[in-house]
């Protein structure tokens, strides 16, 4: 299945205005982690928080909804969140842990859970893994190239970055800039080019803007736990939802992009195998 195994797919957004204002799209990750904290489903969450340099995120342990909201928004460069999970459990004493992860990070977490050779007493403490769709990720220097060189903007003025409609977008207080996505090609980390997972197929639930209208996100619930936590949040009014059949651009676009990633990267995998280079799958 091109979207992985799932229980339900809906279009959704957080009803909280504060979250809507700071979130990338529908505020699903922020809203759900904050809800899970409030409901004590989790005691803390590892998120990609602000770092010392502008737009260079650092993994951080958020213990309150405010800290989660402060970390809202997509960062288009590395935040090795997985390395923070052990710290969250050992140093913050968190027994029930949530996190947000892109597909490759999710793979690292799930592998550790199924085969915990060297990581003690962590596997059973991860209670909520919110996945985000991901086509590729960029080294920080690539982002600097897009913003400083190609667009000629001071990175400290950037308020939001986004990818959509075939373009890489940068928002400042007064202006909107973009470059065609084609111009970003070759700047992604090469490790992304053997990844076949667009929709975070091993998360408890996965989300991203693709398929939904502006300000909304497409949510795919996958595991029993992921599905029930999301349903609870919807029933409580944390999220409002729309049937995917009634939204534009709709599920077709999500399926198309997921298939594109699989096809393109399968070719890279085949080529690597021909050259005798290792591929884990």
């Amino acid at each position: 299945m091109v979207l992985g195994t799932y229980k339900e797919i809906v279009s959704a957004r957080a009803t909280d205005k504060e979250i809507q204002n700071v979130s990338q799209d529908g505020g699903i990750v922020t809203g759900l982690l904050a809800y899970a904290l409030d409901e004590k489903i989790i005691e803390g969450a590892v998120v990609a928080g602000p770092g010392e340099e502008f737009w260079k995120p650092e993994p951080m342990v958020a213990m309150t909804a405010d800290e989660i909201i402060a970390a809202a928004g997509t960062k288009y460069t590395f935040s090795p969140n997985v390395m923070m999970l052990k710290k969250a459990v050992r140093q913050y004493g968190i027994e029930k842990l949530g996190t947000v992860a892109i597909p490759c990070q999710t793979m690292g977490i799930r592998k550790t859970q199924s085969y915990p050779f060297g990581v003690r007493f962590l596997a059973d403490k991860i209670k909520l893994l919110v996945g985000i769709y991901c086509m590729e990720n960029f080294p920080f220097a690539s982002l600097q190239t897009f913003i400083s060189e190609k667009m000629g903007i001071d990175p400290t003025l950037v308020e939001k970055m986004d990818i959509g409609k075939g373009k890489f977008w940068v928002y400042t207080q007064d202006d909107v800039f973009n470059i065609p996505l084609k111009e970003t090609h070759g700047y992604e980390q090469d490790g992304c080019n053997v990844c076949l997972d667009y929709t975070c197929e091993l998360a408890d639930l996965a989300t991203g803007s693709v398929g939904s209208p502006d300000g909304w996100s497409t949510v795919i619930t996958r595991t029993e736990d992921g599905n029930s936590i999301f349903q609870q949040a919807v029933e409580t009014g944390v999220f409002e939802t729309k049937d995917m059949a009634n939204v534009k651009p709709g599920l077709d676009l999500l399926e198309k992009l997921a298939a594109q990633k699989k096809d393109k990267n399968q070719k890279t995998i085949d080529k690597r195998k021909e050259m005798g280079l290792p591929v884990p799958y």
């Binding site: 090795p80 997985v82 390395m83 923070m84 990070q105 550790t112 990720n137 490790g191 290792p278 591929v279």
Partner: peptide
């Protein structure tokens, strides 16, 4: 081998 994806699993596992 062009396989690293910056997930941080190694650093956590050490």
């Amino acid at each position: 081998q062009a396989l690293c994806i910056a997930c941080g699993t190694c650093a956590m596992s050490c």
